[in-house]
Nucleic acid binder design. Structure first.
Lengths: 106, 106
DNA sequence: AACAATTACCTCGACAATCTAGGCTTCGCG
DNA sequence: CGCGAAGCCTAGATTGTCGAGGTAATTGTT
């Protein structure tokens, strides 16, 4: 439930990782909580997204431990990832504003 | 050029038609102009979207004339379409707010 | 009259992102 | 010991969008 806006997942993941390294499961939790339960990232979407982003060089991973002491793959932003975050943030702002315009003024 | 947020096309079309009947080509133009060139709906996306929405009973069509006097298929909102517009508008507002939360507070 | 550009609609195939629905291992706790 | 939660993974189906084509009618231009 609680559908996710298509195409915004990368942006959200980048933004979360910009606050510090985190593992996949934790990223999903974080998005869920920060959105006050409004967004729910399915694992079947999240993990493939992480691989795509790693393949593009926006994030990198290493095995470590979660905050609960479990084995976990920790992702962190690369320099390219930080730059990509800014690009996608601007794209989002522009698109969201445009949609706002239409909803209000059409 | 000028990518469209995936999944928002229906909302935009419904919103434009809420201001009065219009033909497909005109809907695309209207979205383009109202968004101040920020959004560009490709015809390959628009027409299939119109058929989907008509099949779902949100809009209906009849052949008539465009404002330029050309033959055109005029679409208008149905009662279900108006209700769907409100639903999607709320979904959008909720999602956009949630994403704003994450971008600002993550 | 001939021609190009514009308006307007249509469709097919490719592609990308998401979801469903499974399955796996490890660990903590009662 | 057993169970549930934490955490990762993947295959398949679905869906939405786009690119690139095409057609027909009309308007404007030469």
């Amino acid at each position: 439930m609680a559908e996710l806006l298509s195409g915004t997942l990368d942006l959200l993941v980048l933004r979360v990782l910009n606050s510090g390294p985190l593992h996949g499961f934790g990223i999903g939790e974080r998005i869920h909580v920060l959105s006050r339960e409004a967004l729910d990232v399915e694992e079947g979407s999240l993990y493939p997204a992480l691989y795509r982003m790693e393949a593009k060089g926006w994030i990198e991973s290493e095995w470590g431990q979660s905050e609960r002491g479990r084995k976990a793959k920790l992702y962190s932003l690369t320099r390219d990832g930080r730059s990509q975050l800014e690009t996608e943030r601007e794209n989002w702002n522009r698109a969201a504003l445009a949609i706002r315009d239409i909803l209000d003024n059409a």
